[in-house]
């Protein structure tokens, strides 16, 4: 079967050049999509299911790492092998250290032909030897470690109360009462046992201000107060469904966070 690849790079010249260089060192590789932003990368990858994804780290929309996280969370369970990921960056010291530590493939811009050839050889070996379930598990483990190492530095002041504005009134919601936070576009839904509020900030901005021992991220868009989880049930696809104190709906923890809900 011909291997397929997706390229996500927002700078047109660099994208075209990577495509050209790949054609030289790996002629059989077929580029099925070349996109310039994170949201398209995610959508195209889920639709076309390429064997490889080359993801620039800094892209408009979603970053390369966010695309990888979303892919790992939303990848279907039908046995399609999870794509091998190659991150591309011009200069992100911490990311590069994390990639090296987790043996994740990465390329530095400007991309040197020798380095690209090595990377291709390695990818070819991995493609020929891997099996789908293993690939998924390996990707999940690597990404979990990467996301963990990118965790915000300690010392950010922690919130005790959420101030949610409605018209000219500001509602004060003690953190103790929040069952979960859910990302909704540019907003975050703040859900308590009997109420819901919207705050005008992204989950990415909110997360560092929450105490991570009390509030667990369970999905790229969901953070739950651990104290208020009553049970966790794992289904055959690896997703974990949570029931909550005071709320009737269930929340789903993604593959990346399922390990949080193991029995002691």
């Amino acid at each position: 079967m011909t291997p397929t690849a997706l390229i996500a790079e927002d700078e047109p010249l660099l994208s075209a050049s990577l495509q050209a260089e790949l054609a030289k060192c790996w002629p059989e590789l077929r580029i099925v999509a070349s996109v310039g932003d994170g949201a398209q990368a995610l959508q195209q990858a889920l639709q076309l299911k390429p064997a490889l994804c080359f993801l620039d780290i800094r892209m408009p929309g979603l970053s390369g790492l966010e695309v990888a996280q979303a892919l790992a969370e939303d990848w279907p369970d039908d046995g399609t092998p999870f794509p091998l990921l190659v991150f591309i960056t011009a200069y992100d010291q911490y990311a590069v250290q994390a990639f090296a530590a987790q043996a994740v493939d990465y390329l530095l811009k400007p991309v040197e032909p020798d380095r690209l050839a090595q990377c291709c050889a390695r990818l070819q070996r991995q493609l020929s030897s891997r099996e789908a379930p293993q690939a998924m598990q390996q990707a999940v483990d690597q990404l979990r470690a990467l996301l963990g190492s990118a965790a915000p530095a300690a010392g950010t002041p922690k919130l005790e109360v959420i101030q949610a504005g409605v018209g000219s009134t500001v509602h004060f919601v003690p953190l103790d009462e929040v069952v979960y936070f859910e990302a909704a576009d540019k907003y975050v839904r703040v859900v308590t046992a009997d109420k819901e509020h919207l705050i005008r900030m992204s989950l990415r901005e909110l997360l560092p201000q929450l105490d991570s021992t009390r509030f667990w991220q369970i999905h790229r868009g969901t953070v739950v107060q651990a104290r208020l989880v009553t049970s966790a049930t794992r289904d055959e696809s690896g997703k974990t469904h949570l029931t909550l104190r005071g709320r009737s709906e269930k929340l789903t923890a993604s593959r990346l966070y399922a390990h949080l809900f193991k029995p002691m």
Binding site: E11, L13, L14, A16, S17, R58, A90, Y91, D92, L108, K109, P110, V111
Partner: peptide
């Protein structure tokens, strides 16, 4: 550095193109 290396990467492509 991010700006510098990205610019150099583009420059590298343009030299051939």
């Amino acid at each position: 550095p991010h700006m510098l290396f990205n610019t150099l990467a583009n420059l590298r492509v343009l030299i051939a193109l």
